[in-house]
Design a protein around this nucleic acid. Structure first.
Lengths: 282, 282
DNA sequence: GGAAAAATGAAATTTTATTCCATAATTAGG
DNA sequence: CCTAATTATGGAATAAAATTTCATTTTTCC
């Protein structure tokens, strides 16, 4: 993968002249990425074709391609990974770890989502008579946020984080209603029951949950989100953020489907808040 | 300096044709690093000199040098840039854009946070007699989430998204109480007043807001979060997610400060939920 | 509406990389 | 230790790519 390592590994399969090239590159790779093939050849006291052959031997397409690989190796970035917080971490460390894990999980979540199902969900939502968001605990927060967003669209929308209200609402639902049930684990009994009730009453049930959960089985559409929670801390962190991002996607899909006139309306909603705010000086 | 971000930032200083180039590059940077200047020019429907001028405008020496920078940016882990959703985007496109923008903004937010202030905030929180979270609109959701988290720590914690309750609560606060006020714009009048009231009553006021806002001026500690909201859609998206990640950081700092015994307690809280869930088969 | 400034692309030029091939170096077999 | 075969190497030619120049078009500003 890393071309510098590769050069080191293959050093003994190279010919004498090619090794000269390798040495120049290894000794100052940062200069090389800004050199032409002629400059490098001169530096290594060999000819240009030799440099070219050297590049091919390393499975690159030629000198420019080789420089590209070299540049990437030097950039040597740390891609975002799920790093667990450690007891001895400083504020800076745990802060970085949490942000990075969150980003890594968003990436995971994105990969696990099927755009076709997003599209179907948006279809269903734009045609809904009423939209309900149900969640408990951390997912209640997401449902709450979803209500705030869809409320702006001037469609009937409700959100409940109370089991009884959820049940009653589910029982009262009917064809044309959309019920979005949010649960990372997909195993919360009362929510699974609510989904089932809503379905029995002909509502379209969209589940925001993980793959193959009891909740997923009760849903008309399952938007599955894979995230790996850091269970060390016993608190939902990444899952709810991925859920929120998904809500953003659905809300965006909704506004796009409704067209530009509709977006003017959103602007009005936003402008209506102006008087409650301090002016900007700039 | 990530060149993809740079392109995004300078998008409006570019000429029409140069912007075409920028768009092609942003939409598939991985293709571009393997393209010749001619291929890119053709893809963007402009001439080769324009590509060249574009590269120079971004302070690179020319096209090959630009490709080098681009390659490094891509290797650098984050190809995540703030990309605006477009009217003609497919579900897959707007989904990707939203997730990527969210990630890009989390990165921005992380950079704008000062670990020292995080540390101070955690200090204050661990010693608090009572913790209150206040927010309105999208930030109310964040406050709601914060309550869920801190509630597990077995400390007195409240959350209000009602201006009157917020005011009353602020007036009743006293030394040793911590009030966390959340507002992306930092310009919501009633929240600024609440912060001011709490401060007058000797509570420690922590603001989660942007830099240099009216709210920031009223706070004892300002945790400033820079994010660039996509104002095209008139909905808070990235800001609240960054705020949530910050809440995670604070909550994590809290548990770390309290030590391992305390974390056993968290496990108990989590275990208490077990009976309300379906068992896992695996 | 027109002059000045800015943007753009066609063509020429320059730079850079690659190919071809003759020659030199190395190796293996006697 | 020599010779034929193989491999490595570089000079020159060629091809490809990037850059510069400059005329033309478009935009901006009065």
């Amino acid at each position: 993968m890393n071309i510098l390592e590769k050069i080191t590994n293959e050093l003994d399969t190279l010919s004498k002249s090619e090794r000269k090239v390798a040495e120049v590159i290894l000794s100052s790779p940062n200069t090389v990425i800004h050199s032409s093939i002629a400059a490098l050849a001169k530096e290594a006291n060999i000819s240009e074709p030799t440099v070219n052959r050297f590049c091919r031997r390393l499975d690159t397409k030629g000198y420019p391609d080789f420089k590209l690989h070299l540049a990437q190796s030097l950039a040597n970035g740390t891609p975002y990974v799920n790093r667990h917080v450690d007891e001895t971490d400083s504020a800076e460390e745990y802060m970085s770890k949490i942000f990075e894990s969150t980003m890594a999980n968003l990436e995971l979540a994105r990969k696990s989502l099927d755009p076709m199902l997003i599209n179907r969900s948006v279809d269903v939502l734009t045609q809904a008579n009423k939209i309900s968001f149900f969640g408990l605990g951390a997912s209640a927060v997401v449902a709450h946020d979803a209500q705030n967003k869809f409320f702006r669209f001037n469609v009937p929308v409700v959100y409940f984080d109370d089991i009884l209200m959820q049940r009653m609402s589910a029982i009262n639902s009917r064809q044309g209603d959309v019920v979005i049930v949010i649960s990372h684990t997909g195993r919360t009994k009362s929510l699974v029951e609510v989904a089932s009730l809503a379905k029995e009453n002909d509502a379209t049930v969209i589940g925001i949950t993980s793959k193959d959960t009891p909740l997923a089985k009760e849903c008309s559409i399952v938007l599955s989100l894979d995230v790996s929670e850091d269970t060390d801390l016993y608190m939902p962190m990444a899952s709810r953020i991925a859920q929120l991002a998904l809500i953003d996607v659905l809300a965006t899909g909704f506004t796009l489907r409704r067209g530009s006139k509709f977006r003017d309306n959103l602007k009005k909603v936003k402008d209506s808040l102006r008087s409650s705010r301090f002016d900007r000086k700039d």
